[in-house]
Design a protein around this nucleic acid. Structure first.
Lengths: 150, 150
DNA sequence: TTTAATCGTGGGTAATTGTGGATAAGGAGA
DNA sequence: TCTCCTTATCCACAATTACCCACGATTAAA
């Protein structure tokens, strides 16, 4: 599994190209074939999954019972989904609809999570963090949740 | 597991480099590959985990269902997370945001706990200790909490 | 007390990475 | 078939980073 970690602030150019941090490219699993699947994620941001990881996620989605809600999710996801392969400079390309949804203008923030990368407008991401609960509070809540799960 | 122990007072330089005490490097597990993951911790300090130890923690986090609360935790953590490998002199590099949050200026205090290292501004750390409750009281409260958790 | 080795600190240099633009290739429509 | 538009590949610059070397202080040994 690719272990993406850390935050990087980059720039999106006029052609919709976004650089993938070198550290992320380095840990990208070979099975992904240098290709990412970009989808929409909660709070109006985008996620880039390594192609092979997306395949698994897709299988999990397909296995859920087709309730009206799940069906709607499938359709909403499909609406803004794209596949993009790294160019020689290590960038992927986002399409116009994705750029609009995430409100990407110039400054982009990329954050690595274990299996995927989130792509945010820097402005919106900072707003999200500012509005979020106090770090210490969330930290201790999480510790409790971890204990309860045992 | 790496058993970090003791307190060390060092200096952060203009490039954001912080020396890791020789004693800590000596006990660093080989699985960490000379690499630390630096994250934010309660009371505006930083923590450095050996890479392999962080991997396990991350797996546990990633396995939680993505509720809005969990997602918020992921993002708060990811916001100030970085990975850094020891240079030839045995130092790691902190980024500007981490330095700002922890208020690191010159004098740094590193304290080893069993599985991680905490990085504090020396000034803030001393204040924290001064303001802390009576040692004996805190000692017995923690013992009780340990009993309740079982 | 002197000497030697080890560890922490600071700075200079060279390679790498991110970014923008130019050129070539491919496809659609007339 | 030709032209225009879109997409992808290539090239070049500049800022940043990481690597390397050297000094000094502290500790250990003789």
């Amino acid at each position: 599994m690719s272990r993406f970690r850390g935050k990087f602030v980059y720039t999106i150019d006029s052609k919709g190209r976004v650089n993938i941090p070198f550290k992320f490219r380095k840990v990208l699993s070979p099975g992904a074939n240098e290709t990412f699947v970009v989808s929409r994620a909660p709070n109006d941001c985008l996620r880039a999954y390594p192609k092979d990881a997306w395949d698994s996620y897709e299988d999990e989605l397909a296995s859920r019972p087709q309730t009206p809600e799940t069906l709607q999710l499938h359709r909403l996801l499909g609406n803004t989904l794209s596949e993009s392969t790294l160019d020689k400079q290590g960038r992927i390309k986002l399409d116009a609809e994705q750029i609009a949804i995430a409100g990407l203008v110039k400054s982009i923030t990329l954050i690595g999570y274990t299996g995927y990368i989130e792509i945010w407008s820097t402005e919106r991401f900072n707003e999200y963090i500012d509005k979020a609960d106090d770090f210490d509070k969330v930290f201790f809540q999480s510790v409790e949740a971890g204990l309860r799960a045992k």
